[in-house]
Design a protein around this nucleic acid. Sequence first.
RNA 1: GCGCCCGUAGCUCAGUUGGAUAGAGCACGAGCCUUCUAAGCUUGGGGUCACAGGUUCGAAUCCUGUCGGGCGCGCCA
Length: 576
Amino acid sequence: MILYARFAAYVNDALDALEGEGVLTRGIERGAVAVEPPRDPAHGDLATNAAMVLAKRAGTNPRALAEAIAAKLGALNEVTSVEVAGPGFINLWLARGVWEAELETILADAGDYGRSAMGDGQMVNVEYVSANPTGPMHMGHCRGAVVGDALAAVLEHAGYRVTREYYVNDAGGQVDVLARSAHLRYRQALGEEIGEIPEGLYPGDYLIPVGQKLAAEHGDGFVGKPESEWLALFRTEAVAAMLVMIKADLALLGIHHDLFSSEAELQAEGKPEAAEAWLRARDLVYDGMLEAPKGETPEDWEPVELPLFRATRFGDDQDRPIRKSDGSWTYFGADLAYHFQKAQSADQLIDIWGADHAGTVKRIKAAVAALTEGKTPFDVKLVQMVRLLRAGEPVKMSKRAGNFVTLADVVNEVGKDVVRFTMLTRKADAQMDFDFAKVVEASKDNPVFYVQYAHARIRSLHRRAKEEGLSLPGDADLSLLDADELDLVKLAAQFPRIVEGAASAHEPHRIAFYLGDLAAAFHAQWNKGNDDPEKRFLVAQNPDLTRARLELADGIGQIVRNGLALMGVEAVEEMQ
RNA sequence: GCGCCCGUAGCUCAGUUGGAUAGAGCACGAGCCUUCUAAGCUUGGGGUCACAGGUUCGAAUCCUGUCGGGCGCGCCA
């Protein structure tokens, strides 16, 4: 059990006991009771607000209640002292044995340290990337990919069962454009001079091999024929080729989805019709007039009757059409059915979207609320734009082929680990700069470097210990660690809380910030050895102390590895 | 016009879901180191948390309004 959860249970026990003694009114809701490490270490190792949040409803004075709780907690073997402070905080100081034992636990649990039962095996579906299958991944997709993947890992560590899903938008007008672009390349492969790629088609070279493959497999049978004869085939073939490319791009980042769901298949299986029927039966879809768009009304606006979803009942500003006037599904209509399907096999849904889709969050939330009758929690995480810089100058990008930065280019230039870590050094809803020079800089200003460096130093300790003929750790006597060193253990022991916090807030960037703090604390301890050789981790004339310190370092190293693993970053053994 | 996001040190950003004296890096000041425990260390100054109300034991955090910035709005995807 996580250290903090254990002490929360002790607080709970104390409250039970006080209820039994008639000191505390029975049955008061304890949801707001928190047991946390205080910001200021002068306030102890752990603090609880129990007395303050319960006193009012118990009709007692918070300080008096705090004294009563404190008396119970002070009696615990694991607690060395307790105080009541301020308006009624209860501050606890824990026996050093608690921290020594926690260090042992870190080493024993190794990669499993930080796992939590919080998720209780609930099924969470995380949908991320979901880039249109019309070309290779570019940098615009990168951040959402990394954030979604790291969030999935964090949720798993916190005890959820996670499905990583990619929604393939292979049914809209953009894939017809793709098919036409492929047809042009097909004619090119057959020897036709195609000249400039016309406006409105995809110009990228990546379609050349698609055209060649189609030419090789089908000969010239589709040249000069109407679209009705080849469009569907070319669409399928081109989308399949794009997905191969996209999966390869994602693999460069170490990302592998469990499930690729096709919009076209969803429609072929009649899922949107089923969702529409379900909603019509509950009067949540009706045939009505769409209001004119707000702001500048387009000249060509004409009111038309369409099947509308009653999104306004669920907080949206407008009811939303699920079909177009030609009867085909709108993107929203299909997406609604898709979420309906996802909700059948998940207890919770999370979508990671680019910030440019912010305007459609309300309607999809409304749809999920309607379709699950409010029972399935659903979060849409918006990921803000990344501005690419090269030595401080923005990298110019245009939609024209060859002039947008692909994900593969960036990964090949700076490496997977640097890309992944950097994408997590800011919360998702804040804009971010990605400077090619800065992310690979070897200095303490670069968190990627700084965290990796801490791990490399820890690993080098073992190599060095061997060279200096020191025996490696067996049973270390951890009571030899001083107060500063114990503080490092305390920081390391926060890792499980960080994981839980990141999981419940859907904020994987917290792992990155925490690792930065942990690395800084480790480096600070290491640097003490510069002034005072007695404080080095390896003290040749004192093998017992060295063993204890090596165990401490290994514990920190383990946490760094575990944290990096959640971010999908490999810990390095030495710096290059 | 409406909606969403945002506003924290000179700059770039954290802030443990409402906790105690709001933190870190850069930049600036002072001191130290010239080192493979390398790719610096220690330390100091710097704040009306945009503004005004409200909620309560307690607010950067929640609510309302104002100001400022960004994004979005359609039968597109």
